[in-house]
Design a protein around this nucleic acid. Sequence first.
DNA 1: CGCCGTGTTGACCAGTTTCAAGATTGGTGG
DNA 2: CCACCAATCTTGAAACTGGTCAACACGGCG
Lengths: 225, 225
Amino acid sequence: MPVAQPQSHAYADPDHRSDGGLSALDQTGTLLQVLRNQTIFSEGDPVNHAYKIISGVVRLCKHLPDGRRQIAQFLFPGDYLSFVAIGDHGFCAEAVVDVSLLAFPHKHVERLCWENPDLRARLFEILSQRVREIQNHLTIIGRQTAKERVAAFMLLLSERLSHGGPRIDVPMSRYDIADYLSLTMETVSRTVSLLKAARIIAAPSLHQLELRNLPALHALADGMD
Amino acid sequence: MPVAQPQSHAYADPDHRSDGGLSALDQTGTLLQVLRNQTIFSEGDPVNHAYKIISGVVRLCKHLPDGRRQIAQFLFPGDYLSFVAIGDHGFCAEAVVDVSLLAFPHKHVERLCWENPDLRARLFEILSQRVREIQNHLTIIGRQTAKERVAAFMLLLSERLSHGGPRIDVPMSRYDIADYLSLTMETVSRTVSLLKAARIIAAPSLHQLELRNLPALHALADGMD
DNA sequence: CGCCGTGTTGACCAGTTTCAAGATTGGTGG
DNA sequence: CCACCAATCTTGAAACTGGTCAACACGGCG
């Protein structure tokens, strides 16, 4: 398993607010580049570093022995990754597109946390938020239909990848989307076509998306079909 | 929405190891009893207390507007609950059977965390473990078949409720199990019957379970069908 | 003893997957 | 700049898993 290792010099975060020592932490990271579809770490690897995503998108996924795959989360610029420091990784992390990350040795994070208890409190908050997100994801996967799931996914993208305008570019493949939503690629494709036909979305190009009817999307995602 | 409130006197934890201030925390809790099927807190309620389950089983669930329900977790004696202190509850907590809990005002927990940073580190670990559990649950729900899900559930029960012997008593209804596994009650029932026919389990009574063939169960749960 | 909530079983149905055939897209090299 | 190729995506038809609806059984309790 190719495991990317930090190699570069210290990185200075331009955005340096007072945020419970988070930006102080960021300053200690080393920059790391990972190419599209490369593995950042694999399931079962010992946890050595925490990461912060600077640019690109990461998928957190689990592979079953027979090839089935579940993507637990997509992580976007600004997200922290693997600051859960227990034993081995329960999931593997892969770059959806070329990614740059800050890497922090866990020992380092621990030290900072002891010097500045604020920091751990802040990380605790972030982790709490994460729990909430996964639980919502669980409900979507567990109890919503294909249409509802795809709608929810598009709203996620618009929250995390919108550059102001209505146009979003979708960095991941249909296959990734399917494994995130626990569907097949085909079902995702069909459902997107359906939403296009209903004028709820438009797709100027394959990996671009325009949400034409936000209220309808929200209604769908919330199961008020 | 009936929200149970702590009412009782301080509770002394007999099990008082040095565990990062966790038992110190436990000593500050007030005992609280909640009857079967009563709500401990609802989705959207402000987060005021953290809890530790002393006895009984709790379900964490989300209700969709149209009646669909997803149970994110079952919580068992020893589990902490709602120590994620951000704004409002994202899920509701209900007693599966009569439950006794310790309740801790969150302000209190915060104060203890500042006095003793160990405690927050410990809570962080617990939360990390929780994340891992939910992610595994997500994979089960998302990518495994009915048989695999039921098998995984039985293994969970045996981990958390086994009293040494091979006999487990199953405190929750088929309906609860279904909503935990994202199936219907009927499918759970059928699948259990199937496993009985295959001599993998036995069910001396309706809410009792005996795992007759552990290896087969593990094989099923891991998708090596 | 009989009732009601809960669990089981059966027959049928629907949404999603599977399998298979094309259509787009993007990258490469002539 | 275009042609071609591989990868990705779309669409269609058939199969299947699990869901729905309905009847029935069980079991605890008045």
